[in-house]
Nucleic acid binder design. Structure first.
Lengths: 232, 232
DNA sequence: CGGATATCTTACAATTCCCTTACGCTACTT
DNA sequence: AAGTAGCGTAAGGGAATTGTAAGATATCCG
């Protein structure tokens, strides 16, 4: 909900890759796009995305090989893309351990919803569709991500969506310093086209609501020349 | 743990049956696969598997019939497979006593995780899968999932199927915030091809029926920028 | 102390999101 | 076969939120 899942897209056709990236980013995910299988393997050796969208037909190392490689060392969910609509492929894909299967040409909207579905299945606990997240409690501050409610000294305060996400991110990493660009990336899900000073304003509004004395913050502290951190 | 749970798979399509067997075995279960309903009934007459994975569309004896037969004499959990995502099937299936429901085409990994979930639920407590569900009571609101009736301050109100499902889901998780996509998934059972704003309209209709003042909701609250939650 | 840089604060405009209503479409009823 | 209830889509209006701009204030460093 706050730290965006990272999705690796392995697709050699530039136009499809671009559209896919666009839609996934718009849906709030972090996206890495790679054009060939060798690069994908290299990437996977050092990073662990939350999900892989994989074209079966690739130059060089082929999709099934990547699937085998991945399955051999992790549970990372895989959604396969393919131009062929033969049942044999589908079965083969599933058999190799794909979590879902999309046939080209596909609508980017559909892909996004499948990504969501697979992530929901794999991220949460399999049995209950509603996963409970941990409630954070500090000195006089309670943050409940399930209900998105915040209490300051027994008192409910109403935060907007952005304010809550911002506070929740900071509070989950006490004393960790984030600069404005990182916050834009992690809370807003973007790192371009938005003025970093926006973060400043949101911090201000947040302080107004949760700090006993907004001019002398107790929870959200300014780290001069760098950014902000949460003090528990 | 003494012996591995035994799972009966009733599925007439050979490729699907094979993949399913493969995955379940790899997950550590004993598996019996049968291709038609008559054979399944015969098998069930002399064996008692721990769980049955059942295709609804079968040649000969049909899936619902097997369900009825099973429910009449045991508590064996059932996971249904179906090619259709029709509302009637879904409702009928659950009504007959299925424990879970998987829509084809499905990923075998997903099926395995659902099998695990159902077994965890049923083996742990030995509770009956078709037992009466709990009636929910709030301030002036009574929700009876068994009769699917709802009362607002002693007064019966007639809800449509969707409205009831929506209300019941929200009310079972008080204060938990759901976004529109989650609701589509959990209430509609679909996560693609349906406009999320549909949820908005249904919430509106629901409020019209159960809220004293629909413009100032008391039970179903909007969480701006996120979704909705139930306030008990 | 004083300039430079970074942050704070406020007000305003743009945007996003939600509410509401109306309209076909489908499935079921009579 | 016509009528009806339920459902999903579309569109306009309005409200809450959010990003931006701009002046004020604080901090750093020479």
């Amino acid at each position: 909900m706050t730290t965006q899942p990272l999705i690796l897209v392995v697709e050699d056709e530039p136009s499809i890759a671009e559209v896919t990236r666009l839609y996934l980013q718009r849906a709030g995910y972090r996206v890495e796009v790679l054009g060939d299988g060798a690069a994908a393997l290299e990437y996977l050796a050092r990073e662990s995305p939350d999900l892989v969208v994989l074209d079966l037909m690739l130059p060089g190392v082929d999709g099934l090989e990547i699937t085998r490689w991945l399955r051999a060392r992790s549970e990372t969910p895989i959604i396969m893309l393919t131009a062929r609509r033969e049942e044999t492929d589908r079965v083969l894909g599933f058999e190799m351990g794909a979590d879902d299967y999309v046939v080209k040409p596909f609508s980017p909207r559909e892909l996004v919803s499948r990504v969501r579905a697979v992530l929901r299945r794999t991220q949460g606990t399999g049995s209950s569709p509603v996963q409970a997240q941990r409630v954070l409690e500090f000195d006089g501050l309670v943050i409940d991500p399930n209900t998105r409610q915040v209490q300051v000294r027994e008192e409910d305060v109403a935060l907007t969506a952005r304010e809550f996400d911002l506070l929740y991110l900071l509070a989950r990493h006490p004393r960790q310093v984030f600069n404005r660009d990182q916050l834009l990336d992690l809370v807003w899900g973007v790192n371009e086209f938005i003025d970093p000073s926006t973060v400043t304003v949101h911090v201000r509004r947040l302080r107004e609501k949760i700090e006993p004395d907004p001019s002398k913050p107790r929870y959200i502290l300014t780290v001069w020349g760098v950014g902000y951190k949460f003090e528990p």
